[in-house]
Design a protein around this nucleic acid. Structure first.
Lengths: 195, 195
DNA sequence: GTCTATAACCAGATAGAC
DNA sequence: GTCTATCTGGTTATAGAC
């Protein structure tokens, strides 16, 4: 097993600075080039340190990724809004071109999802951040399942949009996509409010 | 640029045999270990040839992947069935544990989707095999968009199920998932037949 | 010419000695 | 903290065998 990296507080000033530099570089490069595209060497170079130090501090590339990349994509506030309109608001949030780096961060996450450690953390995080807050607000049967499926459905759109870059959806009128797909998600969450 | 590999018909017997051996090995290993997990070297070893030959014959690992892995997951016949029940039938198809290798093939595809050549081919193939046959059978507005979104929604489930291996959905009663999610897909395709 | 094999190159992740 | 070494992986150069 990998030796656990020292906790930040035990490090001397130089160590803390190095660690911070690596984290900053990793944040930039992972977002910019994705998980595979950002090499440990490149991150080290960007931070001005030796590649081996990266591993020494964080244990592995995977662990570094988990420490630096925000696995939530910032939709917490969207989910907390009015339940009756959450479907459309979620879709609208991701179709908003004013959110720079969102695409790249999603792609980085999707790539990294194939690594066990990252995948497990993502599942845990999704359950905790997306599904759990929704469940108590739902009514009817299979509340947890429906919340999980709604999140999955949203992920399907993001995949089409950001990974596949499908021309049909990318080229469609955003309002139309929001209406059609948003309502579809909404019906999973609040079936009784069907239009 | 890479020199184009020779067309199969121009090869001499020895070449054709080698090519076939590589293809067979690639099919097995890609399905078994995914795109990243199956190294060119491992494929070559399995085929009993030199790694360099793999590239010589197929140009690149990506190209080999495209030649050997079935990008359709065999849902053609499902889509061709009755339109009014296609949503549930699609979900049921993928929840059927009797289809061995389905999960692994999907994971391999998902991994390889991050490579440009493969991604483009997948988009093209999806449009041609899934979306195109559906569109003329739909009625109402935004038929192409709705078909694309339905496919995306299905992909979301597959991702949750096969990549994330989410315990909520994996542990849920298949019939319930089929009903809830299948109907959600169905409503994108035939909104008028809402239950 | 058309294969095939050997070696080599370059990049990546990580372990271990200092 | 740093550097070097090792291992694995994709790919290319090149020269020999058919």
């Amino acid at each position: 097993m990998t030796k656990t990296s020292p906790a930040p507080d035990q490090l001397r000033p130089a160590g803390r600075a190095t660690r911070a530099a690596i984290e900053a570089a990793a944040r930039v490069l992972f977002a910019d080039r994705g998980f595979e595209g950002a090499s440990v060497r490149a991150i080290a170079a960007e931070a001005g340190v030796d590649p081996a130090l990266v591993i020494r501090h964080f244990g592995s590339k995977e662990a570094l990724f988990l420490r630096t990349v925000d696995t939530s994509l910032g939709i917490g506030s969207v989910i907390e809004g009015p339940l009756e309109t959450v479907g459309r608001r979620l879709v609208a949030y991701f179709l908003d071109p004013a959110l720079p780096g969102l695409r790249k961060r999603f792609v980085a996450l999707a790539q990294a999802a194939h690594h066990d450690q990252v995948r497990e953390e993502m599942v845990r995080h999704t359950a905790e951040t997306y599904v759990a807050p929704l469940v108590p607000r739902l009514t009817g049967e299979h509340r947890e399942l429906r919340a999980a499926l709604a999140v999955a459905q949203l992920a399907g759109l993001l995949n089409l949009l950001f990974v596949q870059e499908d021309p049909i959806v990318s080229g469609a009128d955003p309002e139309t996509v929001i209406a059609i797909y948003g309502d579809a998600i909404q019906r999973l969450l609040t079936p009784e409010s069907a239009a």
